[in-house]
Design a protein around this nucleic acid. Structure first.
Lengths: 349, 349
DNA sequence: ATGAAAGCGCTAACAA
DNA sequence: TTGTTAGCGCTTTCAT
């Protein structure tokens, strides 16, 4: 009887108590005589009573609903964040509305519908600084950011340790003997792209390598931009022996472009990505990458948000999740390269 | 002032009318004098009043919330369905809770929380027949299925035209001159896998080809199972000249396995998948596949669900979305194959 | 065209 | 320990 319209008063009548006593039983109040409790519970079962969540929200003045706003819901990263947050939310008795907000306009509209009308009691925002969307975000409302730390105080956030991720990627390349290392960045307006650059530079610097600007090419996270970046790189005549792409999609674009140009990976070119997409090991060659635990990021975000909702004085946190190097076949030692690296032959001309 | 606690009565007081008149203005009732309406609207703006959605749901007895239950939220297919449904729902003033229900147990628990407590007013279920989950589904509740048509009357559903998809895939291979065509299936308990088999057989039959059972291998949708399937196929000594994998992930597994065994795609083996994953064109070689418009499937499902909610007498529909052949580089004419197909050399021995 | 009264199903505050 | 009385913010019904 899923559609039961049994109310708390029906149960009260059936059990011969007041509706308030039923409420106490439902909410596990201590002040109920064991005998009464039994009686009420029996009535609840018999009538198949289910508390009405809406009425409960109404009386309590708060909903057990969260929202997660992402640029879209189909990107593997965003989808995984949502899943992580959703599963965690449920553990705490909350549900999650996930909405795709590709533009600031849409985000603003969503905010109206979700927050101003008090539909949800907390909000997770993925990549708040991709555009001006952050300027529409409400103040004095439970908020958690994913992908960037908040630029103003009082908002918790959780991100990958992007600097470390970039550092680890380059360190892996360096450990293989590479010295001429290029990077394809994501959209530079995003914090994570900037942080990954910092890690890149730090590793290079520690190894005593000064890199020229030409070795850093901006992409936009897409595989296509990875292709374009590699083509731009070859046109300069200075093809590096290794490339760090700031995400797997761009790394895959780089690999395809190299393949099209007859440059073999990893013999002539090492490529490392970042993310560890589900099919990363099925590309040719299987992609070496820096893995991020996206589910964990999402679930931590939900945890922080709920803590903030239930205890508004909860301190602000800026969590950072550790990346992990996954070595596959797209990177190889520089020394073992069978043919001369491309840039040398160019240089010799 | 996103946290405005202005109520309908505050507006009423401010405008010097009864709260009921304010309600009429909000709901665009005809029976309001233009002058009064203006006055009230001005007060609404001035006080920045936003109707409380929860209270509205409470009084109306219905929520503007839908839920979409999927085995998980990260698979590209599921994520895209959710996005399609979510965007469509919003167009109609609804929001969508998406939850991952990997097991029937979890699904049952979700059903309790979402439906029995009247949190949502409609439900989209993805792949209801993957396990016994369908047996927990409520009756007399607005329901729409995705991935399978309902086995009982009264429930709308939307699926890919799986039979046509299988048919198109095989027809493409046949048109290239292939005669020895194998198939790697998905989980056979699912309708879509069965339907794709029917399309496979239909195309073969029309071409006058009788296939033996050994040419059909069961997979489980995973890339790994595609690998395994191809290895099993080679072990029989009868390697076909073309393979139809019922989804892209398995097709990619087949391609990798073939590559590992030194069998070149498409020269020695043509491979066609189904889905058209975002990176399908970045595998080696770029994957020929049957594309399904997943966003459309999700959005149609939301449309049907909302129609059913708002007009319970709305007739049941069983929508079927057309697939589309996308030709890339993993399939080639049988005649142009530079080397003898594997199975011939085996047969000649 | 407008207002007053009642109630949606629950919880909180008080009283007994 | 239990019951009674008030709301939560809105809509609906019925007067006026």
């Amino acid at each position: 009887m899923p559609q039961s319209r049994v109310t708390i008063r029906d149960v009260a009548k059936h059990a011969g108590v007041s509706h308030q006593t039923v409420s106490r039983v439902i909410n596990n109040s201590q002040h109920v005589a064991p005998k009464t409790r039994k009686k009420v519970q029996a009535s609840i079962v018999e009538l198949d009573y289910r508390p009405n969540a809406i009425a409960r929200s109404m009386a309590l003045g708060r909903t057990c609903l969260l929202a997660c706003l992402a640029p879209n819901l189909t990107d593997f990263t965003f989808a995984s964040l949502v899943e992580g947050a959703e599963v965690e939310a449920r553990k705490h008795g909350y549900f999650l509305i996930s909405s795709s907000a590709p533009t600031p306009d849409i985000l603003q509209h969503l905010l109206n519908e979700l927050i101003d009308s008090r539909r949800v009691s907390g909000l997770i925002v993925i990549n708040p600084y991709v555009d001006e969307r952050y300027s529409y975000l409400p103040e004095n409302f439970p908020l958690v950011f994913i992908g960037s730390h908040a630029r103003e105080p009082g908002i918790s956030s959780v991100t990958l340790d992007d600097e470390l991720a970039g550092y680890l990627a380059v360190q892996h390349l360096l450990s293989l003997g590479h010295r001429d290392i290029a990077m394809v960045t994501g959209v530079m307006i995003e914090d994570c792209a900037q942080k990954r650059c910092i890690g890149f530079e730090k590793a290079l610097k520690e190894a005593g390598i000064t890199h020229t600007a030409s070795q850093v090419i901006q992409g936009d996270w897409s595989a296509t931009s990875g292709r374009d970046a590699f083509m731009a790189l070859t046109e300069t005549g200075k093809v590096p022996s290794a490339i760090f792409a700031q995400n797997d999609r761009m790394a895959i674009g780089v690999m395809q472009s190299a393949r099209d140009m007859g440059i073999s990976v990893p013999e002539q070119l090492s490529v490392i990505g970042l993310d560890d997409l589900p099919l990363a090991s099925y590309f040719a060659p299987p992609l070496t990458t820096i893995r991020q635990d996206i589910i964990k990021i999402g679930s931590k975000a939900a945890q922080l948000l709920i803590a903030n909702i239930e205890e508004p004085s909860h301190p602000t946190h800026r969590l950072t999740i550790n990346p992990e190097l996954i070595v596959r076949k797209s990177t190889a030692p520089f020394n073992h390269q069978k043919e001369e690296p491309i840039e040398l032959s160019h240089n010799q001309i």
